[in-house]
Amino acid sequence: MKKLYSIDKASVSDIKGITKLRVALLKEVDEIQTKEEEAKIISATKNYLETEIPNHNFVSYIAKNDEEVVSVSGVSFFKRPPYLENLQGVEAYILNMYTLPNHRSQGLARQLLEKCIEECKKRNVKRIWLHASKDGEPLYKSMGFSSKGSEMELFL
């Protein structure tokens, strides 16, 4: 039986769930080794999200199964000096894409990524970029991202 999920734009009330999945992601890619590192990441992430979600500099889409956040995405928006491919300089960085292992292969990451791209289009972002895990690369390629060195990018 297929599980039921809701997909929503995250709010400040979702910070605990977003942080939980961010920690799970960082542990999975071996970027958190100790309880002390985990505590630092939890505190810093919470502080960042409490500021950046209300300021709209960071947008997250989440998938919930009942009330549990089981999949997450994030987009950080910024403006850099213009260059030929992006004369407005508006860019977005996708990060924090993660789905709990027992909820994978349900299309959640694709749905969340689509929401992130829609948000970027609404904000007139010209370039979206990210660093992909080996497991994530096929999804990003299927959505039009191309590899450029250690990162992947999509021009809108």
Rank of each mutant, 00 (worst) to 15 (best):
P81M: 15
T99F: 00
E52M: 12
L108S: 06
K141L: 14
L130C: 01
E153W: 09
P82D: 01
K64L: 06
I42T: 08
F145V: 08
L4F: 12
Y83Q: 09
S60C: 08
A39E: 11
G17H: 04
S133A: 04
E28G: 15
H103A: 11
V90L: 14
I32C: 05
F78A: 13
E153I: 12
I117T: 02
L49H: 00
K141M: 12
V125C: 01
S60G: 10
A92M: 03
E151Y: 09
T99D: 04
N47C: 11
S6V: 02
S76H: 15
K46H: 15
V70T: 03
S150C: 11
E151S: 15
D135P: 12
P81I: 14
D14Q: 05
L49I: 02
N65F: 09
N124F: 11
Y48M: 09
T99R: 00
Y48T: 12
V69T: 06
C116M: 06
E151F: 14
S142P: 05
Y98M: 01
E114T: 07
S71D: 07
K126F: 05
G17L: 00
I62P: 02
T99K: 01
N57I: 13
V70N: 06
S43E: 15
I32L: 04
T51L: 12
P82S: 02
G107W: 08
A92K: 01
G149P: 01
M152C: 04
K16L: 07
L95Q: 15
V23P: 10
Q88L: 15
M143E: 06
Q106D: 01
E153R: 06
S6I: 03
A63S: 07
C116I: 04
M1I: 14
Q106C: 14
D8T: 13
N57H: 15
F77V: 00
V72N: 06
I15M: 02
S150K: 13
P54C: 06
Q106A: 14
V59P: 06
E38M: 11
E28R: 11
H131R: 10
E114M: 00
K9H: 00
L84C: 13
S11L: 02
F155R: 07
V75N: 05
K148H: 12
I53M: 01
E85K: 10
P138V: 01
R104G: 08
K141Y: 14
Q111N: 14
V23A: 10
K134Y: 07
F58N: 15
K148Y: 09
E52D: 15
L21P: 07
S147H: 10
S105V: 13
